[in-house]
Design a protein around this nucleic acid. Structure first.
Lengths: 251, 251
DNA sequence: GTGGCAGCGTATGAAACCGTACAGAGCGGG
DNA sequence: CCCGCTCTGTACGGTTTCATACGCTGCCAC
């Protein structure tokens, strides 16, 4: 029925897909499927078979650890820089974690079994995705650190920065309620922290909406809690414009 | 000089090494080197080239995230069930994290380059170690959750349990000071939390020494914060006694 | 056996955050 | 236009943890 539009790697906006060699991209291309990713969509259900792996483009997903009785904490954010369902890359087809769409948009997906086959066929594909897993590990560690050591304002700043990195523009559609879930604090605490940032002109807050005004000072506010995973990403994942392997001794 | 003693897989006490197929073990054997792991030894230095990867046997290592200015938090514990230097398995030869020996003992090590070669030679070896990486990710996530959501007593219980899993017997050589560093809380807080556990007869505390008396109630105290990574490990890593692949559809 | 030190017990005031409750404010639908 | 719902602002008492300080104790070295 529908005209098959040839998928071009250069038109993609997911950085991992961009970073593939053209051979590796050719391997995945037949199985990549563009999908709408509406807010709240469950991409990975805990302890269920993972059917698809997602490469977000404009959407952002959250990875949540849930320990039964309603206690849940966000452990990672994945947007256009990464892939949702990383355990498939590690040869594991279910995980105790949950992933859902936090900011809606679009992306591509691929059947887990197709990806597994492609990983077996191409060492370079597997290598790239494994390096991303490393970065994701560092991000989760930074979350653990932030949760343990930082005051709320700092954690909020970190979270806003991570979101800002994954969208175009300076507008984030977020409610206090949602942030309180992500940061695992109570909602009025978020309200206060937002007021502090707004009071000094770093952000502007409107109903269900936050605008980043001064990113530089937001980074200052986040302090150490922001930056390590981001630097690791830049070190290990080729930039779109650059040659396929920007670092001689990567890793 | 020294008589070369043939290394037998059955005599090893690291569960990953035990779980290798005999072919995979043969691949690693020539490069495995037994080492003493004294307390405080730095196994992995942050942002430095990783020279060796370690398989602890009686020793336990801590993985620490350090964000410059003295803020540091433990993000994972590795003992006889795992491997220190997992980023090598992901094809990355340096990491922002630090690993050091927390409880001294012995273990084996292998040059990072040798391991990398072996990983390229054997898909099943790579697969096993990647599944362990998944488990480690889950452990780090559980740490993030614990740091964010749990009161100190719960976190302490979790930490003691993880240590207990990795030693023989019920004796842990630990100081309050050390625990305060691992849990990223102040030292008197640890003292109080230990008194609570001791007061109800779950542990017995002596100078620089904690004895687990009632593990079952310790698990109750830890609640949800303990158990998820441990279950994931049992699900994905073959047990020593069992056949090589205990689960038909692993992963 | 005694000096010294690492390890532990305890106190105190301050700060961050919690759980809960409730009222005002923006916004869309009938 | 106004109802109703979501979102946000604010308040209150209570708990946990913080930072810091200081004294006691077990243990090793000399």
């Amino acid at each position: 029925m529908a005209a098959v539009v040839e998928l071009k790697q250069s038109s993609l906006r997911n950085r991992l897909l961009q970073a593939l060699t053209s051979d590796d991209f050719a391997l995945l291309k037949p199985h990549l499927e563009q999908v709408a990713l509406p807010k709240g969509m469950l991409l990975i259900e805990p302890n269920q078979l993972i059917k698809h792996v997602y490469f977000p483009e404009t959407a952002i997903a959250s990875v949540i650890a849930t320990n039964s009785e309603s206690r849940q904490v966000e452990i990672a954010i994945v947007g256009r820089e990464g892939v949702v369902g990383p355990s498939v890359i590690l040869g594991v087809n279910r995980t105790p974690h949950q992933s859902f769409i936090q900011m809606e948009g679009t992306g591509y997906r691929i059947a887990a079994s197709c990806l597994t086959q492609a990983l077996e066929a191409s060492r370079s594909l597997h290598g790239l995705l494994l390096r991303y897993i490393h970065v994701l590990t560092v991000q989760t560690a930074a979350t653990a650190m932030s949760n343990g050591d930082s005051v709320l304002g700092e954690r909020l700043a970190r979270w806003l920065l991570m979101c800002h990195d994954r969208v175009d523009g300076d507008e984030l559609a977020l409610t206090h309620e949602f942030l309180s879930l992500m940061l695992a604090v109570r909602r009025p605490g978020v309200t206060e922290a937002i007021h502090l940032l707004e009071g000094v002109g770093i952000i502007r807050a409107r109903r269900a909406h936050i605008t980043i005004i001064d990113r530089e000072r937001l980074e200052e506010t986040a302090g150490d809690s922001y930056g390590v995973p981001e630097a690791e990403y830049e070190r290990l994942i080729p930039k779109p414009g650059a040659s396929t392997m920007p670092l001689s001794g990567q890793g």
